[in-house]
Design a protein around this nucleic acid. Structure first.
Lengths: 137, 137
DNA sequence: GTGTTTGCAAAGTGTTTGCAATTTA
DNA sequence: TAAATTGCAAACACTTTGCAAACAC
């Protein structure tokens, strides 16, 4: 378990005030393994742990953490936004049936040819989503 | 310009009745080059051409055409759904600043290693989105 | 005629915003 | 105490739905 001060510093370094809510959410997000959350799922978790945080604050915090580079936003479903605590170079499996998202380590996948960006444009990211469904039979 | 009967057959083959609205939308979608549309953009186009189609019908039609395999849905933005008339194997550039989407021909890009699907799952698709922004030079 | 499709307006979903009250520094 | 942050409720954007009228076959 990471020390309390770790989250405190992390938030301060992001230029944000370490409020009770931000600390609570940081603890949920960055304590263990890499995670993929939606605003709803994180809010639900916080409630389950008796942390009092409003859904609006969860949204704000997720966006602030994303701007600060602590999280990465992943677009896989038009219905909801996902945030990934792993900000490194990697791609995703998306389980369409239950909305789950898991990492694909970068060495499991390789892109040998990347197209040049169109005239006057710069590539911001190359996002790969491998959509999977339950095998029938 | 494709003959009228082409769209008629296309819709019939999809198991749908060739109504005035579906024919009009098929004409907009499948007349020229491959296209990327949103419900709003297609509805706007229909209006501009004095075709009377409600937005609800545009949504319904896009989904019906997608189920029928005439269109492919592309997820690049949590805010809106895009539909692509090119149902073949290819990937996309997404211009974040203006919401534009363009095809990347399959030979401009190559994926040499694709991970195995997790236990019990089957890969449905591998979607690559290259996000580009204006070069700040 | 019968079943399908349309269009409207209402409802739904996930997300953002305005603002007074609260908290942080 | 000044500035940032929170939480609520209202507003939002996009999408879906219920249902009577219109249409296709």
């Amino acid at each position: 378990m990471r020390p309390y001060s770790h989250f405190l510093d992390q938030i301060r370094l992001a230029g944000l005030r370490p409020t009770r809510q931000r600390l609570a959410l940081a603890k949920l997000l960055f304590s263990g393994e890499n995670r993929h959350v939606t605003a709803e799922s994180l809010h639900g978790e916080a409630q389950a742990e008796k942390m009092r945080v409003s859904l609006a604050t969860v949204y704000n915090t997720l966006h602030q953490f994303t701007s600060a580079g602590l999280l990465r936003e992943i677009v896989v479903d038009a219905q909801r936004s996902y945030f990934d605590t792993n900000t490194g170079d990697h791609h995703h499996f998306y389980f369409e049936e239950n909305g789950m998202l898991t990492d694909i380590s970068d060495d499991m996948m390789s892109l040998t040819k990347v197209p040049e960006a169109p005239e006057g444009m710069a590539i911001k990211s190359v996002d790969i989503v491998v959509r999977v469904v339950e095998k029938t039979q």
